[in-house]
Design a protein around this nucleic acid. Structure first.
Lengths: 193, 193
DNA sequence: CTTTCCTCTTAATCTACATTAAGTTTTCTT
DNA sequence: AAGAAAACTTAATGTAGATTAAGAGGAAAG
């Protein structure tokens, strides 16, 4: 199994010794998800934290009309979970599924919490990536509050240039918060290149 | 100076010994902000993390028309900061000001980072409240994506019953993402009690 | 290879919410 | 207590983006 992405991402923030790395590796689980396959379903308890190693997952919520609203895309190197459900063991509001055939590592809650207690460097790593995630959520929220659809699209293109090439347009529409029809119209009417 | 709110909030997650508590207390700074006074202005570098001990702060962003969009209210016991600016030392996109006369504790970035390194329990505490913040941001984003204005208002009332009583209606409108005129109309037209 | 199912497009119509503009009430300030 | 400044209300009009519907190009599954 390929742990290099995960280990590299950790190494950017802390330096684990042989023993600490071993403890981490011992609790990793590996799984694959085919395109469209669920990794977490709304209503389930999310008792794991997921790190994508290949392909692309996404999280989304469904409104009362059945329309999907994408919260996050997670290509290789990204973490994804329903955090409230993870913390409180309440049913998840998010679905997580695979956009492409994907592989991911997951860590069970009990293992994750134990490792944080035993390996302060891991706790440190998680504190830091937690702060980064908060920064990302804050910015996303600001963007949604102050920008119109076209600007949010431009933003997305700039922020995720690799995703824009591979994602179906309707997924991007869902992420920026418009219908696929409106995004199509927007892109083919306004001359924005 | 009153540290009890902060210490109690930490004690919910970790138990600091005498020395650790002393190290924490030694880096705290105390400040007051009068109603409407700025604690952070857009464009400044946010080099501190703020914990409110009395009153109420809020963070907001301003759009191109000059309209304010509230991101967060922080009554006593809450943390508030522009996280991206804190992490990267880029100019803040958020303004933070006082809604009521307020008192707060702040910790400078260098002190905060040093304390995290020296006191693993503090790092642990921050990891945990970081996860909680992520859960909150995720839920807010889901709510914004899948609910109409009236439902977002009902949500707000349920989630922050104490705030609803004290906040001017226009602040609530800004938080849920509608104009004060529309919120007023909504509340006086629909019979929702 | 062809049938099926997506994905994307175009266009007409519709609606939740914004804008503008008064007027009224409440609350600060002095 | 008076005056100024916020906060809230009401109503007419405007608009970004939704909805509905239908058709066309692509990919994937048998």
């Amino acid at each position: 199994m390929d742990n290099s992405l995960l280990l590299n991402s950790i190494a950017k923030h802390v330096t684990l010794d042989e023993h600490e790395e071993q403890m981490l590796l011992s609790i990793l689980h590996y799984k694959k998800a085919k395109r469209k396959q669920f990794v977490l379903e709304e209503g389930d308890i999310s008792s794991k934290i997921i790190f994508v190693t290949s392909g692309c997952l996404r999280s989304y919520a469904v409104d009362k009309n059945g329309t999907e609203h994408v919260l996050q895309f997670a290509p290789a190197g990204w973490w994804i979970t329903d955090m409230r459900s993870y913390i409180t063991a309440e049913p998840a509001r998010l679905n997580i599924d695979a956009i492409d055939d994907s592989e991911y590592i997951f860590i069970n809650k009990s293992d994750f919490e134990e490792l944080n207690l035993k390996v302060p460097k891991f706790e440190r790593f998680n504190r830091i990536i937690g702060q980064n995630a908060i920064a990302t959520y804050q910015h996303r929220q600001i963007d949604n509050a102050i920008f119109a659809a076209m600007e949010r699209y431009a933003n997305f293109c700039q922020l995720y240039p690799s995703l824009i090439k591979t994602l179906p347009q309707k997924q991007v529409a869902s992420y920026i918060g418009v219908t696929p029809e409106f995004l199509s119209k927007m892109l083919n009417t306004q001359i924005v290149k």
